[in-house]
Simulated scan of single mutants.
Amino acid sequence: MRKQVLSITLIAISAALISWGYKGHRAVATIAQKHLTSNTAYAVSAYLKGESMADVSTWADEHRNPTTGKWHFLNLPLGLSHQQFVDFVNQQSNDNVYGAILKEEAILKDQASTPDQKNSALKYLIHLVGDAHQPMHISRAEDKGGNTIQLRFDNAGTNLHSLWDSKLIDHEGLSEEQIAKQYDWANDAQIKKWQAASPMEWLWESYQISSELYADIKSGQHIDEAYYKKYMPTVHLRIDQAGIRLAGELNKLFNDTKVEAIKAEPINAPALSNNAAPAQQIKLEDVKNNVGKAVSVTGKVFSSKDIRSMVLVNLGAPYPKQLLTVVLKGDARQLTTQLENRTITVQGKIIEYQGKPEIVVEDTHALSIEN
């Protein structure tokens, strides 16, 4: 049987609660990049090992686990005054977007932090500042941030959370470059004012907006052009504020920092270099019993879902009954049409996320497609 061997990058993620979507997060990062001082820009590039802020802006969604998954949002009841809101947030654990932002900034400030620790913290911070400005990430627990409020928009089903993640932005029809340019409209006075606000105030602003959004919607509602025109300026504002404030935080952290150049990791580093034993060939139905092991597994593709920055590919059964999920990212996303109803073999280390087995493969590795 002839096989076509393709080198790809596979990274496992959870598809839930991906804020601002691919375009929105990249826009936040691109706007921030434009407002960095020269020294900060050098430091950021060094700690990111040459990767751009836009390219790492969705990294935190791709590397979720049961602990960091809570970092992307904050649940709280509606109807709180400003002081009640502040008190509520301060009484919570650190496992939310507010605590995570403070934690990652502390790592970046700490001179004892290693380059790898700062690399990870910077990637999280770039993403989480965007999360803090997405109104439906500062919202109610009972509807999972609007995920269970079903709506229709552009002749398709969606929900309140997804509407604000990406659907409104998609409806606008702008490219990534156009979004980053058109959304970045703040003048010097606005920039100074926005950057003076604390992360707590960012969240309070999002809370006020989400409170309005809840009051302005009913489950099953058809979202019309009037709703789009009413709220699109708010989308513009929150993404621009996120970018400007991200730049402000980074300038505070790095403007006076002397950073030695950090050598980037080689692109072709072996994906399983941390595994002493070679990958073991196992059956797809045994994946769940081999968590933590480096394996080679073969299975049929039953379904896939394009979520813009990557494609979730389900082996063994359609979602949500899949036996294994892999993710195609970057150029590999273009392979989606080649994988439909095909049998593939993939190698990597099995991890478990919320009870589901996934394979994380760092850098490049082989994916075989059987004819």
Rank of each mutant, 00 (worst) to 15 (best):
I369D: 05
E340I: 08
Y124I: 03
A46L: 03
M200T: 14
N255W: 05
D240K: 08
G355N: 13
Q33S: 07
L335M: 07
K288W: 07
S120K: 11
L315Y: 01
Q347W: 00
H127Y: 07
D154N: 14
A16I: 13
P233S: 03
Y353G: 08
S120P: 01
K252H: 15
Q280S: 13
T40V: 01
K109L: 10
L74S: 10
N147P: 10
V89K: 01
V291F: 10
A186I: 06
G79T: 11
R333N: 13
G50P: 13
A269D: 00
V295R: 07
R238K: 14
D224S: 00
T114L: 12
K23G: 06
N39Q: 11
K49W: 03
I126F: 11
K305E: 10
L367Q: 06
G79Q: 15
F153M: 13
K349H: 03
H133M: 09
G146L: 11
N251L: 05
K167A: 07
A264V: 09
T37H: 08
E362L: 05
I359Q: 01
N275S: 08
V313H: 05
V28N: 09
E285S: 15
T298S: 12
A60S: 14
A247W: 10
K356A: 09
I262M: 07
A29S: 04
Q4S: 05
T325M: 04
S304N: 09
I217D: 02
E105H: 04
D224P: 01
V297R: 04
E142W: 13
S57H: 01
S166Y: 14
S45F: 06
K167H: 06
D331E: 15
Y47G: 01
Q111D: 14
A271K: 01
I262A: 06
E265K: 14
V5C: 03
G99Y: 07
R333P: 08
W194F: 13
Q117F: 10
D306Y: 10
L272C: 06
F302G: 05
A271I: 02
V346W: 07
S52H: 04
V86C: 11
D184V: 09
Y22P: 03
S303L: 09
P233A: 04
S304C: 04
Q334K: 14
